Simulated assay, not measured.
Amino acid sequence: MIPMFTTKQLGAVLLAILVVGSLAGVAAAQQGPSAGGTIVVDEGETYTGDLESVGGTVVIAGTVDGNVETTAGTVLVTETGEITGSLEGVAGSVTIEGAVGDDVSLAAGAILVRDTATIDGSLEAAGGDVRLDGTVTGDVTVGAEELTVGPNARVGGALEYDAESATIDSAAVVDGGVTEVDAVTIEGPSIVGVPFEFGQFEGPVIPAWVVSGYWFLANFVLGAIIVLAAPGFARRVTGLGTKKAARSGGVGLLTIVAVPIVLLVILLTIIGIPLSLAGGAGFLLVLWVAGIYGALVLGTWLLSLGDYDNRWAALFVGLFILALLDFVPLGGIVEFVVLLVGLGAFALALRGESGDEGDDMGAPDEGSQEDAPVV
């Protein structure tokens, strides 16, 4: 089964994909001064017209006489920087020290509006860490993990926020009052011409059993492809998962912790951003495949209790049990353990290890041979 994510975790993943994907793909396809590794409007320079930028770093130290729409790793509007229109951005981090003449809409891991900043419009911010210590003439809407409103903050309208933790200095001035809500809806900036939204999503409600049934069928189809494409390797993974379950689970836990850390370290370097994106996408695919191998291990073990061996029955039973666990309290824990065992067995099989009692899952299946080569 595919591991489930919370809304905020999924939002963070999508945000990272949007940012890194734009840097790796769109920047390479565009031409002109608004695309590249680093985009700078120097102090004393005036850029006339709307600036639509895609780059690793965007620095506005001069004047942009128009709107700014940017997708970048880092965005900085310095104290000398001025945007006469609106600012829309999706980035890893955004810092505003200068002036923005209209509305600001941001989505970033970290958003900082310093005490020297002036926003002559509304501010909508979605991010992990949002800090406001400047002047906003309109309303402020924030959805964040952590919100900090400093003593120099001046808000001409209302402040509405949804945050895990919030610190609002007593010296801050909010003319329209402060309201904490369970969820806020923030219209995010458009990415490559496609608008997207943070916060609440109102739409048709799909019954949970329909979703589980869909994933059961999708996983069974992928599982069938895996087994048919590499039957010998499937036997090896299943043998490791059933006969070396503890070792497989330990290796799986180590892998699921270590790989994201390595990808994060790579992501911190501009050169490593495309590699980190590709690695992250590949790891998600590996987790999906590992979850199916885990289901195959679970089904094989359960059927072995009745002295019955059949890979197709094992795949069906394993996936069916995992689908039922979606409706059982603490069922997610069992699913996670199954994923760890499948991931560890998959990793060990790639290293060439096998179960203590050989690679065979049981009696040969139709169309396969005992000496089938390991793929």
Rank of each mutant, 00 (worst) to 15 (best):
S276D: 05
Q30F: 07
F283L: 08
I225N: 02
Q200D: 13
V210K: 08
T74E: 11
A107L: 14
Y214D: 02
K8L: 00
D307G: 03
L76F: 02
L325F: 05
V317K: 01
A234D: 03
I225W: 07
L348Y: 05
D162F: 06
A16C: 00
R154K: 06
V211E: 14
F283T: 03
V184L: 13
G272V: 01
G11E: 13
T70N: 04
G188D: 08
G188H: 02
L228W: 10
A172Y: 07
A363P: 10
I96K: 06
G223N: 10
I39F: 04
S248L: 08
V104M: 03
V59H: 00
T38W: 01
A245W: 13
V136G: 02
P207A: 09
T84Q: 13
G299H: 04
V26Q: 10
A24N: 05
V194C: 00
A183K: 14
I273Y: 06
A372R: 10
V173L: 14
G193D: 10
A234I: 02
G306W: 11
G203P: 04
F5A: 12
T48V: 15
I17S: 12
T116Y: 03
D120F: 05
A91N: 04
R131N: 09
Y47L: 12
G85Q: 07
E124L: 11
G121L: 02
G344Y: 01
L287C: 04
V286K: 09
T148W: 03
A372Q: 10
S368M: 11
A125M: 07
T167F: 10
G25V: 13
G177S: 10
V257I: 15
A314N: 08
M4F: 10
E124P: 00
L147A: 08
L324H: 01
A363Y: 12
S354D: 14
G193K: 11
E187C: 00
G55P: 04
L302Q: 05
G157A: 07
E160I: 10
S122H: 13
I96H: 01
Q369A: 13
I83L: 03
D133A: 14
G252S: 09
G331I: 01
E45P: 00
G252P: 06
Q30N: 12
E335C: 02
F336H: 06
S170P: 09
K8Q: 12
G367W: 08
A12F: 13
A218C: 04
L147M: 11
A224R: 12
S170M: 07
G280W: 02
